[in-house]
Structures are given as C-alpha cells and as structure tokens.
C-alpha cells in the first residue's frame, strides 16, 4: 500500500531538511575558515624566513626571496643579510615588511594585503565554492524531487493497471448487463 504524504507534512519535512543541509554548507564554510588559518603560529624567536618568505625577490625571478633560485642573487643575498641583521638588532618582521613596502611598493609582498580591493583576492575562491555548493545543493534537491515525482507517477499508473476498475463501476456494469437479460 502506498504511503500518502500530505502536502502539509511534506512541507514540514522539507522545512526540517533544509536547515540540516544548509547546516552542512555552514559547517563546510566554518571548516574552510578554520583550516585556512596560518599553518604555524610563531612562538619562537624571529628568523630570516619570517620576512624572506613573505616578500618577492626583486632580481626578476618572480620567486619569494626565501626560494630565489639564483644563489648569488645580486638583490636577494644582501637583502637576506640585512633582514638577519635587523632582526638581531630587535626589529620585528612587521617593521621590516613595512620598510620594504615603503621602498618598493605593495608589489614586493608575496601575497595581497587583506584590505581594500585586495580582499577580493582572498574572498573570491571561498565565495565561489560556497555559492557552487549551494547551487549543487538546490540542483540535487530539484533532481531528487524530479526522481520522486517520476517514481510516484510510475507507481500510480501501475496501481491503476493492477487494481482493476473501481467497485462502483463494476456494480454499474453488472446492473446494466442484468437489464439486458
């Protein structure tokens, strides 16, 4: 026997289901945000790497200073020395980064700042993923519904074919047949 779901109950079910799935999307967003935290939180004395991994070498190689492939780099080697000496003299990485930005502009930073238009660099990938996730959620929901509708239609047709005509029609048919007798 087919279990009928009233439109009201169906609506209630959907209402319960949507927050559950939306909850999944929110959880995913939170996970992305948490996992995106910097991989290491420095709790140690500053090293050259704290600066050289955040600025681009100006020799033209395009790599971060720390990874410049030109080991006798005319720009990189003196810069690493300077960073090392400045850190030893008590300067912080932030101060050194500000110094380099004042000298070369923001293009020296290996990543866009998180202010102004540059915020879009950081936000867009996650915004697209979340929008895509929501899009897929609604698409799958629509397709699941279409699948259910089709199943229901197929079931209705099968019921009519197997159950035969309704009783009142059979009675009427028999009455009319008996009148011919």
């Amino acid at each position: 026997m087919r279990h009928e779901i009233s439109p009201r109950r169906e609506g209630r079910r959907s209402a319960r289901r949507i927050p559950l799935h939306l909850g999944g999307v929110v959880a995913l967003a939170l996970f992305l945000a948490v996992a995106g935290l910097p991989a290491s939180m420095p709790a140690y004395a500053y090293t050259t790497s704290d600066v050289s991994s955040k600025i681009i070498c100006q020799c033209g190689c395009g790599a971060v200073l720390e990874d410049c492939p030109h080991q006798d780099c005319g720009w990189g080697v003196p810069a690493k020395d300077l960073i090392s000496k400045q850190l030893a003299s008590g300067k912080t990485p932030d101060e050194l980064l500000q110094y380099y930005v004042s000298q070369y502009g923001q293009k020296i930073l290996a990543a866009p700042t998180k202010e102004g238009f540059n915020i879009t660099a950081w936000v867009m990938p996650f915004a697209l993923l979340i929008a895509g996730g929501l899009g897929i959620y609604y698409l799958v929901r629509l397709w699941v519904q279409e699948g259910k509708d089709r199943e229901r239609r197929a079931h209705d047709t099968a019921s009519v074919l197997t159950a035969g005509p309704p009783d009142d029609l059979v009675r009427r048919f028999n009455d009319e047949l008996s009148r011919f007798d």
């Binding site: 945000a33 995106g36 923001q106």
Partner: peptide, 19 residues
C-alpha cells in the same frame, strides 16, 4: 586600482590548503 599586487606562495598555501 593602478597598483599591481603580487600573488605568491603565501596566498596559494593559505587558500588551497583548506580546499
């Protein structure tokens, strides 16, 4: 903006790790 931002490993590492 008229200013060329650089997008290097720190950006990619931070964004790509969670994905």
């Amino acid at each position: 903006t008229g200013n060329k931002a650089t997008v290097g490993p720190p950006f990619f590492n931070q964004v790509m790790v969670p994905i």
